[in-house]
Design a protein around this nucleic acid. Structure first.
Lengths: 255, 255
DNA sequence: CGTACGTTTGATCTTTCTCAATAATGGTGG
DNA sequence: CCACCATTATTGAGAAAGATCAAACGTACG
């Protein structure tokens, strides 16, 4: 699930871009072939985005919704002191801002974590489809509600868990979502994120994140190569991270 | 905005119960008279709920949605260690679980903070109205999105603000929501919440909350009488709490 | 091969937590 | 209205998780 190296052909090349979205919505609320086709037929533009580039900024009033097709993105907000809190991590197939269909002004930022592709759908036709096609509308509502459930779990994570548990939980969530919704084969997972970003996602400092990661590694819970993390023992990490997947409202994982 | 004393007539007596909901939805997305009437005509049962009683429990699969009519409620989740994190506070007119219309299993608990009334609407007719009446559907979507925006702000609050700012922010949010959506006259606000609940909402301990509250009081930012807090200087508290109302997507306040 | 960015480590400091005891408060029954 | 009980608030002392500061080390990439 790493972003494609520049210039190399990516698997996605063989899929229609919006199939990613249709597939993800379909997992929570199954859609007919016609409904999936209606999604695929939405007008859209596919763009490559560089790492760190902004998809959305606080205060913007965008007239389109972005769907992440490849690579990773994250959502964040800044405090008055300029401190950053990362609010969510996004994987291919995620809608980065369905919110824009209904709220005027964005209250947060969305930024690419890695290089990747984004499909931009104009607000109007997407909204029309959502309102006129009951199943699609329902699927979008469900997607939104699951995102809200994830925000709630993040409040718990940051508010009531210690550093080690917090980081383990974040890693578990990411792995779980990748396995359930992504094209990733089961087994090992990777996350190209800096320790500073990890700190901003967990409400810690980069220095402390570093120490916790080393601790998890020393205990055999994670393996690290550069900015990439993999998990040799899912079940153990899940226990350490106090991770229960109920809030993701997704099909159970085997493992 | 305190809950009505038992046995005394409450103002609400003179309103149709679901007007509260219609009014709140109307603020974010204006509804016609007919649309508001359609909401009012939804089948429902009004119940009194005692303080501390549960409206919804994690794991439940409810077949109705609850609307808070009077009193306050809160949403929370427990960690594996049994620690509680409060996720949101609710004021009259709030939908306590629109989520139930679309997701099977609840991933959190909702509990009454004070005694109050709740209207329960069966899932089916509510869902039907939402799907068939575009404006109502849109209004419900917006209500859901604003709730999600509030969860995001809570992640920021708990993740990246110090104790004093955190508590001041929570108080500001509550006051702002009451003023914007409630029937409360401007000026002073009250919140019947224990310090332990405040601690669970801010990711702190009750002891520390106590110290912070005394500090805020000593600095003239809040007044306290028993479990009730009021704010003599809104603007100052807003600055201390790093509070910016953008995320509430509500009309600006005068003050 | 030098620069910029990210990681690692040590030493020290602060906020916040923990534990424990005491004081208020609110509600209840008499 | 009063005494009693349970909950909540308050306060102090000590401990600890995590933050801060500062420096050294790696690595990627132009």
């Amino acid at each position: 699930m790493l972003p494609p190296p520049r210039g190399r052909k990516h698997l996605d090349h063989y899929l229609h871009p919006l199939d990613r979205l249709a597939h993800k919505l379909d997992i929570h609320h199954s859609l007919s072939v016609a409904e999936k086709a209606a999604i695929r037929d939405l007008p859209h533009i596919v763009r490559w985005r560089e790492a760190q580039s902004y998809t959305l900024r606080e205060g913007d009033r965008p007239d389109r919704c972005a769907i992440l097709l490849s690579g990773y993105a994250f959502r964040h907000k800044l405090t008055g002191d300029g401190e950053r809190q990362i609010l969510s991590l996004h994987i291919p197939g995620d809608a980065l801002d369905f919110q824009n269909m209904f709220l005027e002004e964005s209250d947060h930022n969305v930024q690419m974590l890695t290089r990747g592709q984004v499909a931009e759908i104009p607000r109007e036709p997407l909204e029309e489809l959502a309102m006129n096609n009951a199943a699609v509308g329902r699927a979008i509502m469900i997607h939104t509600l699951v995102k809200a459930a994830i925000f709630r779990e993040w409040v718990v994570n940051v508010g009531r868990r210690d550093a080690r548990t917090r980081i383990a939980h974040l890693l578990c969530e990411f792995a779980y979502r990748l396995t359930t919704f992504g094209q990733t084969p089961t087994g090992s997972f990777e996350l190209p994120i800096t320790q500073e970003q990890l700190a901003d996602a967990t409400g810690l400092t980069a220095v402390h994140v570093n120490r916790v990661l080393k601790g998890l590694e020393a205990d055999g819970l994670i393996d690290r190569t550069r900015r990439i993390v993999s998990f040799p023992d899912w079940r153990m990490l899940r226990d350490v991270g106090d991770f229960n997947s109920r809030y993701l409202h997704a099909p159970e994982l085997e493992t």
